Amino acid sequence: MMTIPTPKTIVMGGHIFETYQILKNGKPIDELNYCDLSEKQKVFLNKLSSDGEMSLSVHRTDFEGQDWGIAFSVPKTMSEDAERFDIFLTIKINSYHPKKNVIEVGTKEDIDADALNKLSLMFQLKYS
């Protein structure tokens, strides 16, 4: 569940780990309603979820930055019963140099860049 920080929950110093739920039971959480997601975008998010669940993990280290991480469960083909694999996306945000953010993408699968590019193109054509 997404929690909004309050003066009582804000902690300074050290490492803070927080997880924000994005999808629950295949639907965006209520806090995302202000984003005006289209029905196509909701279907696309659900397609990339793990059984209708998706969360964003945030690791904050005061005076250093934040790491935002999310995992996408991606079907290897566009069919409904396709085998799936996970893609992990991490955004490293530097507190002192905001233009030097780093994006890391990885998977434990043996999939080459060409296959990922083709899959990405299929998703873009279907959901754009």
Rank of each mutant, 00 (worst) to 15 (best):
M2V: 15
T3S: 12
T3R: 12
I4G: 00
P5W: 05
P7C: 01
T9D: 07
T9M: 06
I10D: 03
I10S: 06
I10P: 05
H15V: 15
H15R: 12
H15G: 00
H15F: 11
I16S: 13
I16W: 03
I16Y: 03
T19G: 08
Q21C: 14
K27A: 09
P28V: 02
N33T: 03
D36N: 07
D36K: 01
L37N: 01
S38E: 05
K40P: 00
Q41C: 05
Q41S: 13
Q41W: 02
L45V: 06
N46F: 04
N46R: 11
L48W: 04
L48K: 01
D51L: 10
D51F: 11
S55I: 12
L56C: 05
S57C: 09
S57V: 09
H59E: 10
E64Y: 09
Q66C: 14
A71S: 14
V74Q: 01
P75N: 05
P75F: 06
T77G: 04
M78L: 15
E83N: 02
F85W: 07
F85Y: 13
I87M: 12
S95L: 05
P98F: 04
K99M: 14
I103D: 00
I103A: 10
V105W: 05
V105D: 02
E109S: 15
D114M: 09
A115W: 03
L116R: 06
L116C: 07
N117Y: 11
K118N: 12
L121P: 00
L121H: 14
M122C: 10
Q124W: 13
L125S: 09
Y127S: 08
